[in-house]
Design a binder for these strands. Sequence first.
DNA 1: GAGCACTGC
Length: 967
Amino acid sequence: MSRSKGRYFNNHRGRAHGARWNAGEESEEAGPSRTYGEQGGRGRGHGRGGRRGGPPEGLRGRDIGMWYAARGRAKKAAAEIRNRPVVGMEPEHEKHIRTLLDDVQKQRSEEEQQESNEVKPRRNPRDEQYHSFYQHPLTQDPELDKRLRLELEAKQADNRQYKDMQEFRKKLPSYNMRHELLRLINENQVVVISGETGCGKTTQVPQFILDHHVERGQGSTCRVVCTQPRRISAISVAERVACERAEPCGNGNSTGYQIRLEARLPRQQGCIMYCTNGILLKWLETDQLLQSVSHVVLDEVHERDIISDFLLVILKDVLPKRPKLKVILMSATLNAELFSEYFGSCPMTNIPGFTFPVLEYWLEDVLQMTKYKPPEQREKREPIWMKFRRGKRYREDELKKEQEFKEKFNGYIKEISTTYPEEVVYYLQNMDHEKMDIDMVSTIIRHICLNKAEGAILVFLPGWEQISKLNDLLTQQQMFRNANFRIIPLHSMMPTVNQRQVFERPPPGVRKIIIATNIAETSITIDDVVYVVNLGRVKERNFDVANNLSTLKPEWVSVAAARQRRGRAGRVQPGECYHLYNQLKASMLTDYQLPEMLRTPLDELCLQIKSLKLGRVHDFIQKALQQPDPRAVDLALESLVQMNALDDREKLTPLGYHLARLPVSPTIGRMILFGAMFCCLDPILTVAASLSFKDPFVIPLGKEKMADAQRKLIAEDTYSDHLMLVNAVAGWEDARDHGRGAESDYCWRNFMSVTTLKMLDNMKTQFCEHLASIGFVEGKSSKQRSANRNSGNRQLIKAILCSGLYPNVAQVRQNSFNRREGKYRPAKIVTPQDGRVKIHPKSVNCDQSHFPSNWILYHLKMKSSDVFLHDTTAVEPYPLLFFGGKIGVTSEDGVEAITVDDHIKFSAPARIAHLVKDLRSELDKLLKQKINQPGMTCWGQDTKEGRIMQAIIDLITTQEDHSQSDW
DNA sequence: GAGCACTGC
């Protein structure tokens, strides 16, 4: 890390004397420090007339308690005012800003006489260019038809590879149904095709459609788009299909793919294009009726991700306007009917799957075969305070399910008593069925290893904690500590140190044991798995509408997920699956996981709806397959209005227009636009890419502490996860420039993933291209000089972060030295909505007892075992004043203050407060205008924008971070 | 004192 230090950031320490953080310290400005003195006296004078410091004479019983409570409140309020940061200003700044505002106002009155009309955002000139490939509606080309047909006939006649592949294809279950499938598709506008993995629907159906057109001499009128929920599947399926057609993938051949930042395009007509769901959604921005497509195949619709559900609604609307468009939905068998009903009971057909049989066992069988004795359930009493905790509604649902389980339990026990031995029934009766028993997992693994034939074992656990625990349990046992076992933990955050080990078939006599999250359910496929152990849980993100809070908790898997897991055992030979829950639980699992649209905040979705001009948001969402809570829509709309993406009539603002086109969430989009305007592009793009994709850090199992420490080192004294990230990525760039060796060395030392870093780097370029097309920057490199003149200014970067992350601000209650413990305690963190929250232990700020400021920004707040802020940046007053919410100037008990959205308060003399407020209002006007008429920022002192923006930067910059100097 | 998984011209 050492080389990268200070690459961007000038250290401003020691220059500050404008703002003071701790009011206890004498300030050069007279006002604030005097008010502190007055405040200090106020609390003490309260109990006048009584015993010294005690309640007044004559108070009895309860009243004494009330008196103390009142005094406590008053003391607290006084302390709050005392601890308010003070916003000050150097005299020369004040003078400068006054002149500036005068000038600007004079200029404005002149301008207003000249022009006063609304400025429309200019249409993105590159929209057309991007989509040129798909722009034109398909038109028949007889020449091409003929050529395509001859080509296909020639291949069928004597292309060796093609004919070999044909033999293989003929064995797929879907191949036998070719004619029926084509008939259904021809006769109907919408068809649902269901089938389990291995039936070949994804690879075959698009080919049937294309070949059918080509054979009839209609090849040029066919363009099949087949969407996938995941990038990897889009690529691998496209490559597979190209191979079956004896062609290279993309490059103007019949088959290609497009995913974010990567494309291998097929020819324009007579082609099959595999892409991610997101790509199809992006096309709709410029081709609303999908004029350029003849067939849309939506694959894996049963997974119900938010984009796929969204596409369904849009397609349903498009169908009547495009009578020739064919839509084919491909789903798992379990809920194919749901989709058929949604499209007016359109025809369905099922393709039988082809996988090897998998023998299933449940908890009852596992207890019997292993003789494992699960710990008996201790009597559980819920503490009374639990009732009053947040999320009561949620708990009620849980209790209902528990209740149902209890009711059915006796009947179930009676039933199994006839088939299972007495001990097993006893244990089932007395164990805690909600507990995640890792000892049992270890026992069944041992059992398989000792008694079963060769074959890899795949274990599904909900998360890091359980993976870590099981890994420890196994490696502690003598039996597993030799070369005959390969234990491989698999988690998206763990480095795949030896990726080949995961997929490689081990030598005979060696057993592979993979301990995974649901990453192995769909994303990673390991062919030689014969045994699956399913603990039956999955961590699930949810959205608690009542509390406007995202949650992440372990939940029971769905029937569909359990099936998917089971299927992982039968890919190459018959397999076995051990579910570690009882058959009653198995019968009570929900068929499917709740669709993502009902589990997630809807800000981005609502913005997309407006951007695609799909009407009123509520009306549109009402048309979804399953409607989210209307309150979730309201929350999203409120947040979009607050960030000025929508106006109060739900109309897209110019800012909203730009935000909808950036491939990131609206908050991150704001950050990107402001970063470009203020010319600290590269660091802001680093943060934006990382927040919207994932951070580039990996954590090896067992080295969590080391990784934490390393990140803290990289953070230096920034008190910011976001700036730490900027440092880390800048360090990587340095290392990369010194060659492959230096790069991998750097990543190894700092626990970073080269793959993720490269992805982030490409994303940054993509953002830049977009900004360039709007006109905010010149070139497509995030490093361009003109857009980075302020990239070394930490304080400004924090301010730009604030422009995006606001109103995600928490208050820090600094903690004083605790004499008894002899140390500083961690600071208390509070948000207005949630009360006390915690900084996530992964954050570089988590153990801090002191911050340079009373306020921290965060991107993600999520409730798991507690409410955690996952990534944080301590932020000083000026960023909040210029890039936060509405500014107010107030006076409480004679203490003058400047406020942001009424609840973030800073002490400031009214003179300064009004000056700041006026300057802020000029900035808002300026930014609005820049959004309306995008262009490079002119920094010269002869331009209005240059003067205003520079004045603000100067104020932000001189406000020192007091991390070292002030306490 | 802790990190399910995806996705975007």
